[in-house]
Amino acid sequence: MFALLAILANVAITVVSAQDPVSFNTSSTLFGSLTNCGTSGTPSCGGDPSQENLCCYEYPGGLLLQTQFWDTKPSTGPVDSWTIHGLWPDNCDGSHASNCDPNRDYTDIPRLLREQGADDTLSFMERYWVDIHGRNERFWEHEWSTHGTCYSTLQPSCLRHGSPHGAEAVIFFRRVVELFKKLPTYDWLAAQGITPSEDQTYSLSELTDALKAASGYTPAITCSGRAINQISWYFYVRGSLIDGEFVPIDSPLDSSCASSGLRYYPKSG
C-alpha cells in the first residue's frame, strides 16, 4: 500500500529555469520515478495539447500559482514564515477551472495522509497550511476539490496500477509542501532588509525588487487595503506534477497593491 508513496518520498523536487539564476535553482537528482514521463518534454503552456499525453503534459491548467498567505488579523502560522494557500492550475490564458471532479472530493485528509505514509507532510501542513478560523481540514479539502482535481497529470488513470485510493491527493499535498519549502518568502524579504513592522511602509517596487533579487523572479503581490496579505509565485511544469520539473517564470499579472505606502504588519504570535 505504501509502495507508491515510498518512491515519492525519494523524489526530490526540481525547479529549473532557462535563465538558471543561481539563488533559485534547486535542481536535484531524481532517485526514483513514478511515471514514464521524464522531464525533457515541453513545459506546460508551450506545446500542442492535441499531440501530448495529458498524463505527462499539464493541460488545460498549465500555468501554476503557488500562493502564500501573510495573515495578521487573526495571525496564523509562525511569526517568521508565510503560510500555504495552495497550488492552482490556471489555464494558460489566465482563466481557470474549478471543482473538476466531484467524485474525488475526498474528506478526512489527515487520515488519507497517515494511511499512505505521509505523516511528515501532515505535520508540516498543521503548522504551515492553516486556516484563519482554525478549520484546517475543511481548508485542505477545499484546496484539493477546487484545484487539485483539475490537474490532468493527477488523474487516477495516470497513476501506477494498484495505487491506493486517493493516492493522487496525497501526491498533491506532498508536492505543494515540497514546493513551498523552496519558496521562503519571509527569508527572502528579510535578506533585503524588509521585515514586518507596525510603523514602516514600503513601496511595491521595493517588495518586488527584493524578491526578484533573492529568487530571480517577480511574483504577484496582493493587498487588503494597504496591507500585503498574499503572494503568488508562477510556474510551468515540465512532465507530470507527480515527478516533473517546476519551471519558474515572472508573474504574467500585475500585483494588485498600491504603488506606495504598503504595510507589512507583524503577526501577533
Rank of each mutant, 00 (worst) to 15 (best):
A210C: 06
E58T: 09
M1C: 10
T72N: 05
A6M: 10
A214N: 06
S152N: 04
A167T: 12
N10L: 12
E141L: 06
Q200F: 07
Q230E: 15
I13D: 00
P156T: 04
D101C: 08
A258M: 13
L64W: 01
S203T: 13
A258L: 13
F124G: 04
W88Q: 09
E52H: 04
D119F: 03
G47W: 01
T67Q: 10
P49I: 00
P89Q: 03
P21I: 08
C37W: 05
D209V: 10
V170I: 12
E115L: 14
S163C: 12
T29R: 11
D80N: 14
W82I: 08
V79I: 13
S23D: 12
C37N: 05
S259Y: 10
S215R: 05
D105Y: 11
L189S: 05
S152P: 07
V170L: 09
T195C: 00
L112C: 01
S28F: 02
F180N: 10
C100F: 08
D209L: 08
D250H: 10
S28Y: 01
S44T: 05
I242A: 10
G148T: 10
C150I: 02
K73L: 09
R138F: 11
T195M: 05
D120T: 14
T26I: 10
N229Q: 12
S203H: 00
D80R: 05
G193L: 03
C45G: 05
L122R: 00
L189Q: 06
F124S: 08
D90G: 07
G117M: 11
Q200D: 14
D254Q: 13
S123L: 11
L87D: 05
S123C: 06
V247H: 03
Y236C: 02
E115Q: 15
A18P: 12
A213L: 07
S28D: 07
E115N: 14
D119G: 14
L183S: 04
Q200R: 15
C92H: 03
R104N: 14
C257W: 03
D119I: 06
R135D: 15
Y151M: 09
N229I: 10
L159K: 06
H147L: 06
D120M: 07
G193K: 04
A97I: 06
N136W: 01
Y264R: 01
Y236I: 04
G225H: 09
A190W: 00
N103M: 08
T39L: 04
Q19S: 15
M1P: 14
S203W: 00
S40G: 09
S95D: 12
L159M: 11
G41M: 11
N25K: 11
Y217R: 00
Q116N: 14
L34H: 10
Y57P: 12
D209A: 13
S255T: 10
S23T: 14
G162M: 11
S259I: 08
M125R: 03
W82Q: 05
L5E: 15
G166P: 07
N99R: 11
L211A: 03
L34A: 09
K73T: 14
L179G: 02
T195F: 03
